[in-house]
Amino acid sequence: MLKEVIFSGFGGQGALLIGQVLAMAGVIEDLNATYRPTYGFEKRGGVAFCDVILSDEEIGTPVIENPEVAVIMDEASFKRFEPLVKKGGAMFYNTSLISSKPTRDDIEYFEVPCNDMAKELGNDKVANMILLGAYVGYSKAVAMDSVEAGLKAKLGHGKEKTIPLNRKALEMGAAIAAK
């Protein structure tokens, strides 16, 4: 088993966080995992993306040149990664913020208006979780319970009360992939 995915957005959108949570979920399931973040000097605003690889074998390069799946949160990331997705792969993109239209016919596209959906849930902050849920629902890379456990581990003590809302966001995303 080998899963390679890129999460990308602008700094502050939480692309790096969901990458980390996915990697943690992988380790919880006894998989090998790598998470490689790329960002600039600034904590917010610049492009921030991460490569996440899960495998039951030893992982070679942690760098993904052509991802099976790209999960895209903003316009700039769409333009950057759309050409790089592997033939036959998939792209999840945030139609709440991205106006670009798909240009390829050899990959599958999933429209996820995650900011609007998050507002429906009452908290804009979980937009990234909806995208992560969509990816997990599509790839079946890990079980959703492992994602929840990974998130708990990442958030640490004192934030447990946000877990049910995040779980809801994850499920909402997964439902899109199931369509």
Binding site: A23, V27, A33, T34, Y35, R36, P37, I59, P62
Partner: peptide
Amino acid sequence: ATIGNMMES
């Protein structure tokens, strides 16, 4: 810096 900044099991 890749090794320093990445996460891995």
